[in-house]
Simulated assay, not measured.
Amino acid sequence: MSETVKYVSAKTLTELGTSLFVKGGLLEEDAQVVAQDLVAANLRGLDSHGVSRIPMYLTRIRKGVVNPNPDIKIENITAAVSKVDGDDGMGFLAGHKAMDEAVRLAGQSGIGLVGVHNSTHYGMAAIYVMEAMKKGFISMAYTNSSPAIPPWGGRTAYLGASPFAAAVPSGNETPYVLDMAMTVIARGKIRLAATNGESIPEGLALDRDGAPTTNASKAFEGVCLPFGGAKGSALAMLMDLLSGVLTGANYGGDVKSLYFDHSEPQNVGHLFIAIKPDLFVSKTEFENRMDDFVRRTKSLPKAQGFDEILIPGEPEERKAAKRLETGIPISLNVIKELEHELARYGLDSLAL
Protein backbone atom coordinates (compact mmCIF):
# COMPACT_ATOMS: atom_id res chain seq x y z
CA MET A 1 0.00 0.00 0.00
CA SER A 2 1.25 3.45 -0.90
CA GLU A 3 2.59 5.62 1.88
CA THR A 4 0.68 8.61 0.55
CA VAL A 5 -2.82 7.16 0.19
CA LYS A 6 -5.22 4.90 2.03
CA TYR A 7 -7.86 2.78 0.31
CA VAL A 8 -11.35 3.34 1.65
CA SER A 9 -14.54 1.58 0.55
CA ALA A 10 -17.24 3.51 -1.25
CA LYS A 11 -19.67 2.48 1.48
CA THR A 12 -17.48 3.91 4.25
CA LEU A 13 -16.95 7.18 2.41
CA THR A 14 -20.68 7.52 1.67
CA GLU A 15 -21.55 6.95 5.33
CA LEU A 16 -18.86 9.42 6.40
CA GLY A 17 -20.10 12.08 3.98
CA THR A 18 -23.73 11.54 4.95
CA SER A 19 -22.93 11.89 8.66
CA LEU A 20 -20.93 15.06 8.12
CA PHE A 21 -23.59 16.73 5.98
CA VAL A 22 -26.31 15.83 8.49
CA LYS A 23 -24.18 17.48 11.19
CA GLY A 24 -23.81 20.41 8.80
CA GLY A 25 -27.58 20.85 8.77
CA LEU A 26 -28.82 18.86 5.76
CA LEU A 27 -31.75 16.49 6.00
CA GLU A 28 -30.50 12.91 6.04
CA GLU A 29 -32.02 12.13 2.64
CA ASP A 30 -30.36 15.17 1.08
CA ALA A 31 -27.07 14.46 2.85
CA GLN A 32 -27.05 10.96 1.42
CA VAL A 33 -27.67 12.26 -2.11
CA VAL A 34 -24.71 14.66 -1.88
CA ALA A 35 -22.43 12.05 -0.31
CA GLN A 36 -23.32 9.44 -2.94
CA ASP A 37 -22.64 11.92 -5.74
CA LEU A 38 -19.24 12.83 -4.32
CA VAL A 39 -18.26 9.19 -3.91
CA ALA A 40 -19.50 8.48 -7.45
CA ALA A 41 -16.96 11.05 -8.67
CA ASN A 42 -14.21 9.28 -6.71
CA LEU A 43 -15.25 5.92 -8.14
CA ARG A 44 -15.00 7.25 -11.69
CA GLY A 45 -11.54 8.68 -10.99
CA LEU A 46 -12.60 12.33 -10.75
CA ASP A 47 -11.08 12.68 -7.29
CA SER A 48 -11.01 16.46 -7.60
CA HIS A 49 -14.81 16.42 -7.40
CA GLY A 50 -15.09 13.75 -4.73
CA VAL A 51 -14.91 13.63 -0.95
CA SER A 52 -11.95 16.02 -0.92
CA ARG A 53 -14.55 18.78 -1.37
CA ILE A 54 -16.53 17.93 1.77
CA PRO A 55 -14.62 20.38 4.04
CA MET A 56 -15.14 23.19 1.52
CA TYR A 57 -18.89 22.52 1.25
CA LEU A 58 -19.24 22.39 5.04
CA THR A 59 -17.35 25.66 5.37
CA ARG A 60 -19.75 27.33 2.96
CA ILE A 61 -22.73 26.04 4.92
CA ARG A 62 -21.23 27.33 8.18
CA LYS A 63 -20.53 30.71 6.55
CA GLY A 64 -24.20 31.00 5.60
CA VAL A 65 -23.67 31.14 1.82
CA VAL A 66 -25.26 27.71 1.23
CA ASN A 67 -28.76 26.97 2.51
CA PRO A 68 -28.73 23.49 4.10
CA ASN A 69 -32.53 23.13 3.81
CA PRO A 70 -33.56 24.83 0.57
CA ASP A 71 -37.14 25.18 -0.63
CA ILE A 72 -36.45 24.24 -4.25
CA LYS A 73 -39.28 25.45 -6.49
CA ILE A 74 -40.17 24.22 -9.98
CA GLU A 75 -42.15 26.55 -12.24
CA ASN A 76 -43.55 25.16 -15.47
CA ILE A 77 -43.13 27.65 -18.33
CA THR A 78 -44.41 25.76 -21.41
CA ALA A 79 -45.19 22.15 -22.27
CA ALA A 80 -41.47 21.45 -22.69
CA VAL A 81 -39.82 24.07 -20.47
CA SER A 82 -39.54 24.57 -16.71
CA LYS A 83 -37.55 26.82 -14.40
CA VAL A 84 -36.01 25.74 -11.09
CA ASP A 85 -35.12 28.04 -8.18
CA GLY A 86 -32.43 26.28 -6.12
CA ASP A 87 -32.91 28.57 -3.10
CA ASP A 88 -29.12 28.71 -2.62
CA GLY A 89 -29.03 25.05 -1.55
CA MET A 90 -26.49 22.41 -2.49
CA GLY A 91 -26.30 22.34 -6.27
CA PHE A 92 -26.58 18.56 -6.24
CA LEU A 93 -30.15 18.81 -4.96
CA ALA A 94 -31.24 21.40 -7.52
CA GLY A 95 -29.43 19.49 -10.25
CA HIS A 96 -31.25 16.23 -9.59
CA LYS A 97 -34.64 17.91 -9.35
CA ALA A 98 -33.98 19.79 -12.59
CA MET A 99 -32.89 16.73 -14.55
CA ASP A 100 -35.85 14.77 -13.19
CA GLU A 101 -38.10 17.57 -14.44
CA ALA A 102 -36.36 17.61 -17.85
CA VAL A 103 -36.94 13.86 -18.18
CA ARG A 104 -40.60 14.28 -17.15
CA LEU A 105 -41.12 16.98 -19.75
CA ALA A 106 -39.34 14.94 -22.42
CA GLY A 107 -41.53 11.96 -21.63
CA GLN A 108 -44.56 14.10 -22.43
CA SER A 109 -43.30 16.37 -25.19
CA GLY A 110 -40.31 14.54 -26.64
CA ILE A 111 -37.86 17.11 -25.30
CA GLY A 112 -37.47 18.84 -21.96
CA LEU A 113 -35.54 22.03 -21.21
CA VAL A 114 -34.98 23.17 -17.62
CA GLY A 115 -33.10 26.26 -16.49
CA VAL A 116 -31.82 26.63 -12.94
CA HIS A 117 -30.85 29.74 -10.99
CA ASN A 118 -29.95 30.38 -7.35
CA SER A 119 -27.93 27.17 -7.31
CA THR A 120 -24.39 26.38 -6.17
CA HIS A 121 -21.59 24.15 -7.41
CA TYR A 122 -23.17 20.82 -8.39
CA GLY A 123 -20.20 18.48 -8.46
CA MET A 124 -19.48 16.03 -11.26
CA ALA A 125 -21.63 16.96 -14.26
CA ALA A 126 -21.78 13.35 -15.49
CA ILE A 127 -24.01 12.48 -12.52
CA TYR A 128 -27.03 14.19 -14.06
CA VAL A 129 -26.74 12.93 -17.63
CA MET A 130 -26.10 9.40 -16.37
CA GLU A 131 -29.28 9.68 -14.31
CA ALA A 132 -31.28 10.55 -17.44
CA MET A 133 -29.49 7.90 -19.49
CA LYS A 134 -30.49 5.17 -17.03
CA LYS A 135 -34.10 6.20 -17.65
CA GLY A 136 -33.56 5.83 -21.40
CA PHE A 137 -33.12 9.49 -22.38
CA ILE A 138 -30.46 11.38 -24.29
CA SER A 139 -29.38 14.32 -22.18
CA MET A 140 -27.11 17.31 -21.84
CA ALA A 141 -26.09 19.39 -18.83
CA TYR A 142 -24.63 22.88 -18.97
CA THR A 143 -23.41 24.94 -16.03
CA ASN A 144 -21.43 28.07 -15.37
CA SER A 145 -19.06 28.38 -12.43
CA SER A 146 -16.82 30.79 -10.58
CA PRO A 147 -14.12 32.56 -12.62
CA ALA A 148 -11.28 30.23 -13.55
CA ILE A 149 -10.06 31.15 -17.02
CA PRO A 150 -9.55 34.40 -18.92
CA PRO A 151 -11.27 35.12 -22.22
CA TRP A 152 -8.83 34.46 -25.05
CA GLY A 153 -6.21 37.19 -24.97
CA GLY A 154 -6.96 38.16 -21.38
CA ARG A 155 -5.11 37.38 -18.15
CA THR A 156 -7.88 37.82 -15.58
CA ALA A 157 -10.10 34.96 -14.39
CA TYR A 158 -13.51 35.74 -15.83
CA LEU A 159 -15.12 32.65 -17.36
CA GLY A 160 -15.77 29.47 -15.44
CA ALA A 161 -14.27 26.04 -16.05
CA SER A 162 -17.96 25.29 -16.68
CA PRO A 163 -18.08 21.56 -17.48
CA PHE A 164 -20.34 20.24 -20.21
CA ALA A 165 -21.83 16.76 -19.96
CA ALA A 166 -23.85 14.65 -22.39
CA ALA A 167 -25.03 11.06 -22.47
CA VAL A 168 -26.54 8.87 -25.18
CA PRO A 169 -27.94 5.48 -24.17
CA SER A 170 -27.28 2.37 -26.23
CA GLY A 171 -28.81 -1.07 -26.42
CA ASN A 172 -26.19 -3.69 -25.55
CA GLU A 173 -22.99 -1.78 -26.26
CA THR A 174 -21.17 0.88 -24.27
CA PRO A 175 -23.22 4.09 -23.93
CA TYR A 176 -21.71 7.49 -24.67
CA VAL A 177 -21.00 9.60 -21.55
CA LEU A 178 -19.06 12.85 -21.97
CA ASP A 179 -18.00 15.09 -19.09
CA MET A 180 -15.43 17.76 -19.84
CA ALA A 181 -14.41 21.11 -18.45
CA MET A 182 -13.51 24.03 -20.68
CA THR A 183 -10.03 24.12 -19.17
CA VAL A 184 -6.94 22.10 -20.07
CA ILE A 185 -7.32 20.60 -16.61
CA ALA A 186 -10.18 20.83 -14.13
CA ARG A 187 -9.51 23.53 -11.54
CA GLY A 188 -10.40 21.06 -8.81
CA LYS A 189 -7.47 18.89 -9.90
CA ILE A 190 -5.13 21.83 -9.40
CA ARG A 191 -6.62 22.40 -5.98
CA LEU A 192 -6.13 18.72 -5.12
CA ALA A 193 -2.53 18.87 -6.32
CA ALA A 194 -1.99 21.93 -4.11
CA THR A 195 -3.51 20.08 -1.14
CA ASN A 196 -1.16 17.15 -1.75
CA GLY A 197 1.90 19.36 -2.28
CA GLU A 198 2.30 18.24 -5.89
CA SER A 199 3.39 20.24 -8.92
CA ILE A 200 1.46 20.41 -12.19
CA PRO A 201 2.72 20.15 -15.79
CA GLU A 202 3.56 23.24 -17.79
CA GLY A 203 0.90 24.82 -19.96
CA LEU A 204 -2.05 24.34 -17.61
CA ALA A 205 -2.24 27.60 -15.67
CA LEU A 206 -0.91 31.08 -14.97
CA ASP A 207 -0.14 32.55 -11.55
CA ARG A 208 -1.89 35.67 -10.27
CA ASP A 209 0.64 37.83 -12.16
CA GLY A 210 -0.14 36.15 -15.47
CA ALA A 211 3.06 34.11 -15.63
CA PRO A 212 3.12 30.39 -16.51
CA THR A 213 3.60 28.19 -13.44
CA THR A 214 3.96 24.56 -12.40
CA ASN A 215 3.33 25.41 -8.74
CA ALA A 216 -0.16 24.09 -7.99
CA SER A 217 -0.79 26.54 -5.14
CA LYS A 218 0.17 29.54 -7.27
CA ALA A 219 -1.89 28.15 -10.15
CA PHE A 220 -4.94 27.77 -7.92
CA GLU A 221 -4.61 31.42 -6.92
CA GLY A 222 -4.17 32.39 -10.58
CA VAL A 223 -6.03 31.23 -13.68
CA CYS A 224 -6.45 28.00 -15.60
CA LEU A 225 -5.96 28.00 -19.36
CA PRO A 226 -8.75 27.02 -21.76
CA PHE A 227 -8.32 23.81 -23.74
CA GLY A 228 -7.77 24.36 -27.44
CA GLY A 229 -6.88 28.02 -26.97
CA ALA A 230 -9.48 30.37 -28.42
CA LYS A 231 -11.90 27.46 -29.08
CA GLY A 232 -12.05 26.45 -25.42
CA SER A 233 -12.48 30.05 -24.39
CA ALA A 234 -15.37 30.48 -26.84
CA LEU A 235 -17.09 27.36 -25.48
CA ALA A 236 -16.65 28.55 -21.90
CA MET A 237 -18.32 31.79 -22.96
CA LEU A 238 -21.22 29.84 -24.48
CA MET A 239 -21.64 27.91 -21.21
CA ASP A 240 -21.91 31.19 -19.32
CA LEU A 241 -24.46 32.56 -21.80
CA LEU A 242 -26.71 29.49 -21.71
CA SER A 243 -26.33 28.73 -18.00
CA GLY A 244 -26.10 32.23 -16.60
CA VAL A 245 -27.50 34.90 -18.92
CA LEU A 246 -30.40 32.75 -20.16
CA THR A 247 -31.52 31.32 -16.79
CA GLY A 248 -31.40 34.47 -14.65
CA ALA A 249 -28.36 33.29 -12.67
CA ASN A 250 -25.11 35.18 -12.17
CA TYR A 251 -22.81 35.52 -15.19
CA GLY A 252 -19.82 37.41 -16.53
CA GLY A 253 -17.48 36.81 -13.60
CA ASP A 254 -20.15 37.33 -10.89
CA VAL A 255 -20.39 33.70 -9.70
CA LYS A 256 -18.66 33.73 -6.32
CA SER A 257 -15.54 31.66 -5.72
CA LEU A 258 -16.12 28.37 -3.92
CA TYR A 259 -12.99 28.72 -1.84
CA PHE A 260 -12.20 32.41 -1.54
CA ASP A 261 -15.49 34.31 -1.40
CA HIS A 262 -18.02 33.81 1.42
CA SER A 263 -19.66 37.20 1.00
CA GLU A 264 -22.92 35.93 -0.49
CA PRO A 265 -24.45 32.90 -2.27
CA GLN A 266 -23.03 31.97 -5.66
CA ASN A 267 -26.24 32.00 -7.76
CA VAL A 268 -24.82 29.42 -10.17
CA GLY A 269 -26.89 28.65 -13.27
CA HIS A 270 -27.49 25.30 -14.95
CA LEU A 271 -29.33 24.24 -18.09
CA PHE A 272 -30.58 20.66 -18.53
CA ILE A 273 -31.89 19.07 -21.71
CA ALA A 274 -33.51 15.63 -22.01
CA ILE A 275 -34.55 14.08 -25.32
CA LYS A 276 -36.57 10.96 -26.08
CA PRO A 277 -34.44 8.75 -28.32
CA ASP A 278 -37.41 7.51 -30.37
CA LEU A 279 -38.49 10.83 -31.85
CA PHE A 280 -37.38 10.03 -35.41
CA VAL A 281 -36.95 6.26 -35.37
CA SER A 282 -38.35 3.58 -33.07
CA LYS A 283 -36.64 2.90 -29.74
CA THR A 284 -35.48 -0.49 -30.99
CA GLU A 285 -34.05 0.99 -34.17
CA PHE A 286 -32.32 3.75 -32.23
CA GLU A 287 -30.68 1.24 -29.91
CA ASN A 288 -29.61 -0.93 -32.84
CA ARG A 289 -28.14 2.08 -34.63
CA MET A 290 -26.35 3.19 -31.47
CA ASP A 291 -24.90 -0.29 -30.92
CA ASP A 292 -23.78 -0.42 -34.56
CA PHE A 293 -22.11 2.98 -34.20
CA VAL A 294 -20.18 1.83 -31.13
CA ARG A 295 -19.08 -1.42 -32.78
CA ARG A 296 -17.97 0.44 -35.93
CA THR A 297 -16.03 2.95 -33.86
CA LYS A 298 -14.24 0.37 -31.76
CA SER A 299 -13.31 -1.75 -34.79
CA LEU A 300 -11.53 1.07 -36.62
CA PRO A 301 -7.75 0.75 -37.26
CA LYS A 302 -5.78 1.88 -34.20
CA ALA A 303 -3.07 4.51 -34.10
CA GLN A 304 0.40 3.60 -32.92
CA GLY A 305 0.55 3.19 -29.15
CA PHE A 306 -3.14 2.34 -28.75
CA ASP A 307 -4.51 -1.10 -27.94
CA GLU A 308 -8.16 -0.13 -28.35
CA ILE A 309 -10.52 2.72 -29.16
CA LEU A 310 -12.64 3.74 -26.21
CA ILE A 311 -16.04 5.41 -26.14
CA PRO A 312 -16.28 8.52 -23.90
CA GLY A 313 -17.18 7.37 -20.39
CA GLU A 314 -15.74 3.88 -20.86
CA PRO A 315 -12.46 4.51 -18.98
CA GLU A 316 -14.41 5.93 -16.04
CA GLU A 317 -16.75 2.94 -15.93
CA ARG A 318 -13.79 0.58 -15.82
CA LYS A 319 -12.16 2.57 -13.06
CA ALA A 320 -15.38 2.59 -11.06
CA ALA A 321 -15.66 -1.19 -11.31
CA LYS A 322 -12.07 -1.57 -10.13
CA ARG A 323 -12.41 0.88 -7.25
CA LEU A 324 -15.56 -0.84 -6.04
CA GLU A 325 -13.35 -3.90 -5.53
CA THR A 326 -10.12 -2.33 -4.27
CA GLY A 327 -11.49 0.68 -2.45
CA ILE A 328 -10.94 4.33 -3.36
CA PRO A 329 -7.45 5.80 -2.92
CA ILE A 330 -7.67 8.86 -0.68
CA SER A 331 -4.56 10.92 -0.02
CA LEU A 332 -3.37 11.25 3.55
CA ASN A 333 -3.75 15.02 3.30
CA VAL A 334 -7.41 14.68 2.33
CA ILE A 335 -7.94 12.14 5.11
CA LYS A 336 -6.43 14.63 7.55
CA GLU A 337 -8.91 17.30 6.41
CA LEU A 338 -11.81 14.86 6.75
CA GLU A 339 -10.64 13.81 10.21
CA HIS A 340 -10.61 17.48 11.22
CA GLU A 341 -14.27 17.81 10.17
CA LEU A 342 -15.21 14.61 11.99
CA ALA A 343 -13.60 15.94 15.16
CA ARG A 344 -15.35 19.31 14.75
CA TYR A 345 -18.73 17.59 14.82
CA GLY A 346 -17.84 15.01 17.45
CA LEU A 347 -18.06 12.06 15.05
CA ASP A 348 -15.97 8.91 15.17
CA SER A 349 -12.62 9.02 13.42
CA LEU A 350 -11.97 7.14 10.19
CA ALA A 351 -9.43 5.17 12.21
CA LEU A 352 -7.39 4.19 9.15
Rank of each mutant, 00 (worst) to 15 (best):
L235D: 06
V245W: 13
D87M: 07
K256W: 09
K231E: 12
H96K: 15
T195N: 05
P301N: 05
A148F: 05
R208K: 15
K218D: 14
S349R: 12
S282F: 13
A31I: 08
E28H: 08
L235N: 11
V129W: 04
E3P: 11
R62Q: 05
M99A: 14
K73T: 15
A303P: 02
T12S: 14
Q304S: 15
Y128M: 04
D254T: 08
I54C: 04
P226D: 03
I77H: 07
G50D: 10
P151Q: 08
G64L: 00
V65G: 00
T247Y: 02
E3T: 15
A10T: 09
G50P: 08
V103I: 15
D179I: 07
H49S: 03
L350K: 05
L38M: 08
T59H: 00
D71Q: 15
G154L: 11
L324F: 10
P212C: 03
V103T: 12
L16I: 13
P315L: 06
V84H: 05
M56I: 10
A80E: 04
A236L: 11
G229N: 01
R62V: 00
T4S: 13
Q304T: 15
P150Y: 01
E316Y: 02
R53I: 10
D87A: 14
L206D: 04
S199P: 01
H340I: 07
V65F: 00
Q266S: 14
L242G: 06
A132C: 13
L206V: 04
E339A: 03
R53F: 09
E264G: 07
S243I: 12
T18E: 13
M290E: 03
V129N: 09
V66D: 00
